[in-house]
């Protein structure tokens, strides 16, 4: 029994064999071996680790920009979004988590057309800065602060919706 499906009425289906693929089938098979090899995984891990120091330095730079942009919510959101984007890749787990909570809060409030609570934004910004600057990574303060901020945001979003 074929699993082939038809397109919706009036639509044209173009099967993979009918348009140019990245690689021929034999080359794709070879590429898949590379993608799944332990050697590739080890090289990739090394590449990820090499990226950490410059990313950490960049995040600390973003934190300074974030603090300078405390009253410019649009700019602050853009910066916090950048922090969220690669803090975890840099091994700054709590920093990324708090940035994620703040981004979600700002995004949701904008969607429902409600004003931001400056205190909530300031609390998050302060926690992001503290987590990012903690020299032993941010594990010690991490989970508890992030959980409390997440609960606070959840309550405010529930009120806003």
């Amino acid at each position: 029994m074929s699993k082939k499906r038809l397109p919706p009425s009036g639509a044209q289906f173009i099967e993979p064999d009918a348009y140019p693929q990245i690689l021929s089938k034999p080359a794709a098979a070879r590429a898949l071996l590379t993608l799944r090899s332990a050697e590739t995984a080890a090289k990739a891990q090394a590449a990820m680790e090499a990226a950490v120091p410059p990313m950490r330095a960049a995040i600390l730079g973003y934190v300074e920009e974030m603090e300078a942009a405390a009253h410019d919510m649009k700019k602050l959101f853009a910066i916090v979004h950048e922090i969220r984007g690669f803090a975890e890749t840099a091994g700054m787990i709590t920093t990324g988590r708090i940035a994620e909570i703040l981004c979600r809060y700002m995004d949701d409030m904008e969607r429902v057309g409600k004003p931001l609570d400056a205190t909530i934004v300031a609390l998050h910004a302060s926690a992001i800065a503290r987590a990012a600057r903690a020299e032993d990574d941010d594990v010690r303060m991490g989970d508890k602060v992030a959980a409390e901020l997440a609960a606070l945001v959840a309550r405010r979003l529930a009120e806003a919706h």
Partner: peptide, 25 residues
């Protein structure tokens, strides 16, 4: 994001292993 090697490679694998049909409407 956050980007990981595993997740990036999984997406490339998906593209190579299960190329998708295109739909035009």
């Amino acid at each position: 994001k956050p980007v990981t090697a595993h997740n990036l490679f999984a997406r490339i694998t998906e593209i190579l292993e299960r190329p998708r049909a295109f739909v035009r409407c």
